[in-house]
Design a protein around this nucleic acid. Structure first.
Lengths: 235, 235
DNA sequence: GTATTCAATATTGTATACAATTAGGCTGCG
DNA sequence: CGCAGCCTAATTGTATACAATATTGAATAC
């Protein structure tokens, strides 16, 4: 079974397509924080005009995946330790309640989806594709928010998880094990059981674990080559 | 020294300027929900090209003040009762804690700013300018979030309050008094006193009051998209 | 008279051209 | 040798031109 494209929202227009591709690259840590995202360069890679690229970059800037400096250009966002801390504080505030809500509403179909996410996550880990595993781990949380059926808060959580990807890229302690989907599995179980209290508590502790796996003291800097990382043959 | 030729003033960031102007118009209820926002029309009004207008509209779409339908155009957002409920649920989740945090950090300068906000709000109310009063009332909440010094959550609250303006435009019960800044005054007092517990509780009850002033049962008439109205049974 | 088809118009989506700003290097002077 | 100033190249900001899609209205067939 080969890794298949992660089902993002279907890109209706070119702008969304480019934005999704860039977001995926960032989430999978192929694009490091602070990487310059030149408009011409991206446009050539995806065969679209700067108009489309600019719209995509602005879209990503709105969820703070990239930072746009006027007359300077767009860069992959590089959250400060303070911002990183805030992201996880906000998640700790929102997600436990979301997990509780999900436990009270999840359908068998939802449980299937969650288990499928975990399965794919395991596959990615076994394949040594950490970037993809991190992305899938985040999408697991997004899926829970979707099940909770709170669009507004779900949207917030999506942006938080997007930024979490950057935080992890910058501050993850290598010595700590990658997202033990163990925790995810227990979460699914409590949600499937409709055990609201347990789901809430598991999510809370899960986030605490995640947070404790970060080292917010050092702020590494990396620069990479765009074209090699983004080059795709599909049209 | 030289004469300053200013045939046409070129703002630093035209996009932001247009977006701000449109957002203000929406917040002050000069632009009603579901109003069509044609690109050419707006461009002529502000003397900018469609490029700038499109960027501004997309920016507003990201905070859900406008809704963009592909190949159809941009419209002032019109939150459903469900969305309206969610907005205030999210505020109830975030703002009490923010008020508590503000109470623990506010400086005398911050208190001055808050009191100034209330004063301006009173002025607007006395002048019968309800739109401006509503906008100022919202900015009061944003100011508290700023004082709390949590950029991430503050950003969420900003978007929630922006949408609250639309919710109020659609669902506000005429019979209920407009935002009694009485509540705001008490809040400022508790924040000035550093009384965290009281600030949190006051904010909570204030939001409950706001919510109870809405009537989410009836969805106001919006004959913007007839096709949808005829096709959907509307839950 | 009604409904359907199809052309005409208007509006949005995208690409390209031009203007403004920035970054880097070169020269010239101290 | 070092630094200031300017000049050139590169990149972004904005405007305009062109393409694609949707809406409108009229003509035609039934």
């Amino acid at each position: 079974m080969q890794a298949q494209p992660i089902p993002t929202r279907k890109p209706q227009d070119a702008t969304q397509k480019v934005a999704d591709a860039l977001a995926l690259a960032i989430h999978e840590h192929r694009l490091a924080p602070s990487t310059k995202l030149g408009e011409d360069e991206i446009g050539e890679i995806y065969n679209v005009s700067r108009t489309v690229v600019r719209a995509a970059l602005q879209s990503l800037a709105h969820v703070q995946l990239v930072e746009i400096q006027r007359n300077k250009g767009a860069f992959v966002a590089s959250p400060t330790p303070r911002a990183a801390r805030e992201v996880f504080e906000a998640r700790a505030l929102l997600e436990p309640r979301t997990a509780r809500s999900a436990a009270s509403r999840a359908t068998p179909r939802d449980i299937e989806i969650l288990k499928d996410h975990i399965a794919q996550e395991h596959l990615a880990l076994d394949a040594g594709d950490n970037g993809r595993a991190i992305n899938l781990s985040g999408r697991f949380h997004i899926e829970i928010a979707r099940i909770a059926d709170q669009d507004t808060i779900s949207h917030f959580i999506e942006t938080l998880i997007a930024r979490s990807s950057l935080v992890i890229a910058l501050y993850w302690r290598r010595e700590s094990a990658l997202c033990e989907s163990h925790a995810h599995h227990a979460l699914v179980q409590s949600i499937a059981d409709g055990d609201e209290q347990n789901a809430e508590e598991l999510m809370r502790s899960h986030l605490v674990d995640l947070n404790s796996a970060l080292d917010l003291r050092n702020r590494p800097i990396q620069v990479q080559n765009l074209r090699e990382l983004l080059q795709t043959t599909d049209e």
